[in-house]
Design a protein around this nucleic acid. Structure first.
Lengths: 216, 216
DNA sequence: ATGCTTATGTAACAAATGTCACAGAAATAC
DNA sequence: GTATTTCTGTGACATTTGTTACATAAGCAT
């Protein structure tokens, strides 16, 4: 079998916790896939045939309501794996979330049938899977905290700051409508609350982007 | 090393997916512990030194708000494991939830240091861990759906029906205050909504218990 | 420029949820 | 028994969030 040099380069760059052997093995069994910006790579309810490691770009994970909208959970970045895909595969269950590329992204797709062996033969893989899942669980609990314990203005502020942190920029290129969709509110409410936040000196509003001002 | 016959009996009764070898091994390394009703066996933020398998009774898992109350996530029953404890151990992280026995319960406690070997040597253990975690993730997502997409009356109905299903009874011994705490609302709101539900023929209200009427 | 589309601002109102105040009923304590 | 506590019911009101209906402004296309 032949190693794919690009894959190995990617893995070395973003997955320091995986063993050398494992990375080589993954570069043999995995396939590179380029995902254009905006493409949905996993639908809620869909069966999963690959475990996905993110090598480039950024993937947005949503929970879809039964009838209604979509609710933002977290981003996957280079170095992350889709925890859901790993676990659902292992249990033969369908996806519980929707995943959409927000930038052009490159992912490594590892076919289902290798999971068992990976788990068994590579300790660093098993640890990676466990840790990925734990982190996602933690993130979902944080999101749950927001919706349960916080009011809309606090949720909005958390959202804004979290976006700024994750995207590593103070200039958030988001419309009020997009924010409203992500946290399941309405555009008018977001505009109103953002205006108040601006008056408090937390943000500066502009057309098509929001400048996040440093917290005191 | 000596097997503990009671443990083995419990494991055989409630954990059909675990291999015979594994059960025998668990009965050697695990310790039985009886938990009185009402006792908290795990606090949020606490480090975890044992993986817990539930053998008897019922454990309630909560998420605690930063300042405020506690929010019900799910129950653990005989045959369940505390997924959080398994994963946090594996990652050396503290607990993300609070666990409280609602009935007198019996649990099997497996010290941290055996996890690595269990994962490596017992395929049925690894599968059990993964599946436990997946199911809890799924439950938390369902709870998240409720808080994000549903109004309070719908959440209350879901809660009531879920309790009835899990506790396997139509007579829910819950006060309005307890319900309010579990879903982070206020007692008056719950009383009001329950009254409406009674008028719709969904429940029958009594002091200290609620009778859940079958859905159409 | 002119018109078209998209994004934002905002008032007025509606609906949902939370809070306060208090009453009465049922259980429990004494 | 009476007193006390706990639980439930409910009206009145406050607050938060969502909705409707526009207005205005910025960018884009021609």
């Amino acid at each position: 079998m032949e190693q794919h040099p690009d894959i190995l380069t990617y893995l070395n760059k973003h997955f320091p916790t995986l063993d050398k052997d494992l990375k080589e093995y993954l570069s043999v069994i995995g396939g590179l896939k380029k995902i254009p910006a905006g493409e949905v790579l996993l639908k809620q309810g869909q069966y999963i045939r690959f475990t996905v490691l993110v090598l480039e770009g950024r993937i947005k994970l949503y929970r879809e309501g039964e009838e209604q909208g979509e609710f933002f959970m977290y981003y996957l970045e280079p170095g992350d794996a889709c925890a859901i895909s790993m676990i659902c595969i292992a249990s033969g269950k369908e996806s519980e979330v929707m995943a959409k590329a927000v930038e052009e992204s490159v992912v490594l797709m590892i076919p289902v049938q290798h999971m068992e062996l990976l788990m068994k033969d590579y300790k660093s893989w098993y640890r990676f899977v466990i840790e990925s899942y734990r982190r996602r669980f933690e993130e979902v609990l944080t999101v749950l905290d927001s919706t349960v314990f916080k009011s809309m203005d606090e949720r909005l502020l958390s959202y804004i700051r979290e976006q700024s942190r994750q995207l590593n920029t103070r200039q958030l290129k988001l419309t009020h409508q997009e924010i409203a969709t992500d946290i399941n509110s309405s555009r008018e409410v977001i505009s109103r609350l953002l205006k108040k936040m601006e008056q408090k000196g937390l943000v500066k509003l502009n057309r098509n982007y929001i400048e996040v001002l440093p917290a005191d």
